[in-house]
Amino acid sequence: MRARRVVIAGRVQGIGYRDWMVREAARLGVQGWVRNRRDGTVEALVAGEEAAVQALLSACRRGPLLARVSEITEEFADPPEEPGFLRLPSG
């Protein structure tokens, strides 16, 4: 299982980005979590088969209809401890 921590910048809060990402992750069979950060970015941990993780990261570069993604940074991470894909409280 491959895991990555990503931070997504741009117009990504207040437009349903987290809910969209939960749906996309479920569709692709990816595990992890997503949350808003105080600095206006969205942070996520995504884990699963490499092809599924890459498909989700590619989708995140576009985001939902109202999103305007300006930058995504990613780094390798440990897989999540809990199954599924969760929407966490803002942090």
Score class of each variant (00 low, 15 high):
1 M>S: 04
1 M>R: 01
2 R>T: 11
2 R>N: 10
3 A>P: 06
5 R>P: 00
5 R>W: 05
6 V>M: 01
7 V>E: 10
8 I>V: 15
10 G>W: 06
10 G>I: 06
11 R>A: 07
12 V>K: 00
12 V>F: 02
12 V>R: 01
16 G>N: 11
16 G>R: 08
16 G>A: 11
17 Y>D: 00
17 Y>G: 00
20 W>G: 12
21 M>V: 02
21 M>C: 12
26 A>D: 15
27 R>C: 06
28 L>E: 01
29 G>S: 11
29 G>K: 10
29 G>R: 00
32 G>E: 06
32 G>K: 03
33 W>N: 03
33 W>E: 07
33 W>G: 05
34 V>C: 12
34 V>H: 09
34 V>N: 14
36 N>I: 00
36 N>S: 06
36 N>Y: 11
37 R>F: 03
37 R>D: 09
37 R>K: 10
38 R>S: 10
38 R>A: 14
43 E>N: 14
44 A>H: 09
44 A>G: 11
45 L>P: 05
47 A>Y: 12
47 A>M: 03
47 A>V: 00
48 G>Q: 06
48 G>A: 10
49 E>W: 09
51 A>R: 12
52 A>L: 05
52 A>C: 08
54 Q>D: 15
54 Q>A: 11
55 A>R: 12
56 L>C: 04
58 S>K: 13
58 S>A: 13
59 A>T: 10
59 A>P: 11
59 A>C: 03
60 C>Y: 13
61 R>E: 13
62 R>M: 05
65 L>H: 14
66 L>N: 01
67 A>V: 02
67 A>C: 00
69 V>Y: 02
70 S>R: 08
70 S>M: 07
72 I>F: 12
72 I>A: 06
74 E>Y: 07
74 E>I: 01
74 E>S: 13
74 E>P: 03
74 E>V: 04
74 E>M: 09
75 E>W: 05
76 F>R: 11
77 A>K: 01
77 A>C: 02
78 D>A: 15
79 P>R: 01
82 E>T: 07
83 P>W: 08
83 P>C: 02
84 G>P: 09
84 G>N: 05
85 F>Q: 04
85 F>H: 07
85 F>D: 02
85 F>P: 00
85 F>C: 02
86 L>M: 12
86 L>S: 14
86 L>N: 08
86 L>Y: 07
87 R>N: 06
88 L>D: 12
90 S>P: 15
